[in-house]
C-alpha cells in the first residue's frame, strides 16, 4: 500500500508498504528516519518513542496504516534547526548518554514530560520515564539530565 504522512513538518510518502509493517519500520527502513530505535518491538522499552498527532507513543505499536495522514515527530525533529534542544543539550552535559540506544526515546519522552509538567518532582520524572529502559547508565545521570533541562527551560 501507499502511505503519506507528515514527519517533522514535511510530507513524506512511501510506496509498496506491506500492511503488517509498523510505523517504526516505515520510519527506519523506508523513510530514512532511523533515529527511533528497534530495541524490543513490543512496547516495553520506549526506544521507539515518537509523537503521533502530538501524543507520545511507541512507534513499534502503531501499524503503518494507522499513521496515514497523521503528523509524526521523531527524535530527528526535536532539535531547533542546528541548535540542540535544551533536553538534548542536558543529556549530553549530564552524562545521560552511554551506548545511546535508549537515548532517542528518552529525549522524546522527556520532551513530552517537560511540555506537560515543566517542573517535575523526582517521583514524577521516574513515573513518566518508567517505560524507557536504559541498560547502561543506572538512570542517575538521566535524572540529572531531566532536572537540568527543566531548570534551563523554566
Amino acid at each position: 500500500m501507499r502511505l503519506r504522512l507528515n514527519i517533522n513538518g514535511e510530507t513524506r510518502e512511501a510506496d509498496g508498504v506491506w500492511e503488517g509493517e509498523s510505523l517504526l519500520y516505515v520510519l527506519r527502513e523506508r523513510l530514512g528516519f532511523p533515529g527511533s530505535k528497534n530495541a524490543c518491538e513490543q512496547g516495553e522499552c520506549g526506544s521507539c518513542s515518537v509523537y503521533l498527532d502530538g501524543v507520545l507513543v511507541c512507534s513499534c505499536l502503531v501499524l503503518a496504516g494507522q499513521a496515514e495522514g497523521r503528523e509524526v515527530v521523531t527524535v530527528e525533529g526535536i532539535a531547533e534547526g542546528e541548535e540542540l534542544h535544551p533536553v538534548q543539550r542536558a543529556f549530553v552535559e549530564a552524562g545521560g548518554v552511554q551506548c545511546g540506544f535508549c537515548t532517542p526515546g528518552l529525549i522524546v519522552a522527556t520532551h513530552d514530560l517537560l511540555g506537560r509538567n515543566p517542573d517535575p518532582t523526582d517521583a514524577e520524572i521516574r513515573e513518566a520515564l518508567a517505560g524507557n529502559l536504559c541498560r547502561c547508565t543506572g538512570y542517575e545521570k538521566i535524572l540529572d539530565a531531566v532536572r537540568l533541562a527543566a531548570e534551563r527551560m523554566s
Binding site: 509498523s22 518491538e41 513490543q42 512496547g43 505499536l61 501499524l63 494507522q66
Partner: peptide, 23 residues
Amino acid sequence: IFGGTDVMVDLNFDRERPGAVLD
C-alpha cells in the same frame, strides 16, 4: 486494532498473520 499493544506484538513477532486488520 486500536492501541496495538497486543495486535502489534503478535505482528512484530510473527505470531499472527491475520488476513485483514480493522483499524
